[in-house]
Structure formats: structure tokens, C-alpha cells
């Protein structure tokens, strides 16, 4: 299918409701909170573990976390549906303009939010300005005793202390698939790129794909009446849609 991507230059060109390129849909009715996505993300992206004390102090490095809240008291107690929170890859990302050194920038080609590890100087402004609180900071050189380094994914930079990081929509997989598609002279097929979280999800609650392709599974799900963007009122134009209700 032939697609023409108009890359808007700035806010005025990109109206609310318009679709970006890559997008994700998470069905909260299906998510069982099993944490497979969390573990898969950590394994794919060389995320460090931080140990008990730092984890308890709010320094975990999860790029994706599953939120849930309690409503009411026993016996009328209800748990809100599990909600995996990851970088929403905002169209108008609040994290981007505030970085003084352009470490947080928008990819015009992929329409996602990039974090340039090598450029980051660690002001942590982006993390403050992220309404979703999905950016994590390397507060230390987290220990990774040998031979654990054998597991590190060579497609993903291993970050060190003083650097902000966040979900990348597994851009290494996107790039790989694009290279393959290009070498075979075709467009990327729907479902060809699967980020680690969606790949692992046993309930198949996470769907990933091209939003600019109206035929794709993710586009159709994103247009479902159950769809809701997180903190939509802020006008950040998230690329992740949550499906609420049953």
C-alpha cells in the first residue's frame, strides 16, 4: 500500500486527533498484570536492576510499569484495571523542548520521541516535565556482576550513571524491520514490528503497529469507542491508546 507521510513542521501543522506513525493500543480489560511485559522490556533493553533499597526509594529503572489502584474498603473493595504505563511517545512531548542540549528530540522519520543517551547531561528536566512519569534516571552505575553482561542486547546501548532513559518503542526492532523491508523492496507489514512488551504479553493485550495505516490492527483498535488517551486533556497527543471497559 502506498502511503504518503506528511511530516508536520510544528504545532500548527499537526492538529489534534491526527495520527502519528507508530502507535500502541493496550486493552486494559485483557491485561492481567502479570508483569511479563516488564521483564521482557528489561531483557530486551538492557535495563539495569537497582536492588532492594533503591527500588523502594523510587529509583527503579522500569521503562514500563503496571499501575493499579484500590477503590473502596473491604468488603466493597475493587482494584482498578491494571494499566501498563510506558512512554506515550507524545506528538507534542513536553519532555522535548525543555532539554537544554537536545538529548530529548522528536524523530521526524519515526514520529516518536527519542532519548539520545550520549547527549544527555542529566538535568532531569524532561523527567519533571513528563506528565506520565515514565522517564527513569541512572542514579548510579547499577551493578551488573559478571557474567550477567553476556545477556546484554548488542542492539541497545548500555547506559551509565547520570543519564535519562525511557521506552523507545523498541526502536532497534523498528529499524531492523525497516532495513529488512527496504532490502526486500516493500513496505513493512502489519505486525512485523513487535516491541518486546507486546511480544511477550500472554493476554495479547498490547498491540503495536502503524497508526498512519487505517487498515492496521492498531489503527482499528485505536479508533474503538473504548479508546482513551492518558491525560488527554494536556494536549500531548499520545501515541498509546488505552481500551477501557469490557
Amino acid at each position: 500500500m502506498e502511503k504518503t507521510l506528511t511530516i508536520p513542521e510544528y504545532k500548527a501543522d499537526w492538529a489534534e486527533g491526527e495520527n502519528g506513525k507508530w502507535g500502541m493500543v493496550i486493552d486494559m480489560d485483557l491485561c492481567t498484570g502479570c508483569q511479563a511485559c516488564v521483564a521482557a522490556c528489561a531483557m530486551e533493553n538492557n535495563i539495569s536492576f537497582v536492588g532492594e533499597e533503591d527500588a523502594g526509594y523510587g529509583r527503579t529503572m522500569h521503562w514500563i510499569r503496571i499501575e493499579r489502584f484500590w477503590e473502596g474498603t473491604y468488603p466493597e473493595i475493587r482494584m482498578t484495571p491494571y494499566q501498563p504505563i510506558l512512554c506515550q511517545q507524545c506528538g507534542h512531548a513536553p519532555c522535548e523542548p525543555v532539554c537544554p542540549v537536545f538529548a530529548s528530540v522528536h524523530s521526524q522519520a519515526e514520529q516518536i520521541n527519542l532519548q539520545v543517551y550520549n547527549r544527555c547531561v542529566g538535568t532531569r528536566y524532561c523527567a519533571n516535565n513528563c506528565p506520565y512519569q515514565v522517564r527513569v534516571f541512572n542514579w548510579r552505575d547499577w551493578p551488573r556482576p559478571a557474567p550477567l553482561e553476556n545477556q546484554l542486547n548488542p542492539s541497545v546501548t548500555v547506559r551509565r550513571r547520570g543519564i535519562m532513559e525511557k521506552c523507545t518503542f523498541c526502536i532497534q526492532r523498528i529499524r531492523q524491520a525497516e532495513d529488512v523491508a527496504k532490502s526486500e523492496g516493500r513496505e513493512i507489514r502489519d505486525g512485523e514490528v513487535v516491541p518486546a512488551c507486546a511480544q511477550a504479553c500472554p493476554a495479547d493485550a498490547i498491540v503495536f503497529g502503524r497508526l498512519d495505516d487505517p487498515e492496521s490492527r492498531v489503527s482499528q483498535l485505536a479508533n474503538s469507542p473504548r479508546g482513551k488517551k492518558l491525560l488527554e486533556e494536556l494536549g500531548t497527543l499520545p501515541q498509546v491508546t488505552y481500551l477501557l471497559g469490557g
Binding site: 502479570c34 511479563a36 516488564v38 521483564a39
Partner: peptide, 28 residues
Amino acid sequence: IKVEGNPNHPVNAGKTCARGQATLHGLY
């Protein structure tokens, strides 16, 4: 490097749980 589910497998159809993902941390 990475554990992924076997998409053809009758049990898990390409999916894994968190423990399966972390099996590499047992290996190394």
C-alpha cells in the same frame, strides 16, 4: 540475548511470562 515465545507452540503461541523472560538471568 533474549527469550521470545515460540509462535507456533500449542501451549503459549508466541507468548511468555515474566519468569520465562528472566531465564537468561539464571543462565548468566
